[in-house]
Amino acid sequence: MAHDIEIIEKTPAEYNYKKRNADRAMRGQLMMFALMIFMTLISFTAVQAGFSPLFVIPVILLLAAVQVGLQLYYFMHMKEEGHGLPAMFMYTGVLIAFLTVLTFVTIVWW
């Protein structure tokens, strides 16, 4: 089976461009990683410090939401090009799930 495997050599300019981009991406990843750990620390501290649950629970939920966003956009690369369609499907799914939950807490009585 003679299937031509195409080998494309990068030009030096192209190589430098890709490398610069990769470096920048790496820096972003590390920063976000540090941020995520910091947010996790805040959550644990908030629980340990013994604040009122009325304060702690919303804060933890908020941080969790931020972390989900960071996870999706940075570590799962949704901020990069070509992720518009998955994003659209995810947000549609989120909307429908939200409506379902809203229904169940408002018009389904117990």
Binding site: T100, T103, V108, W109
Partner: peptide, 12 residues
């Protein structure tokens, strides 16, 4: 349990 839940789930 709640019998209305089936109706909602089924029609969703």
């Amino acid at each position: 349990g709640n019998t209305i839940i089936w109706e909602h789930i089924f029609w969703i």
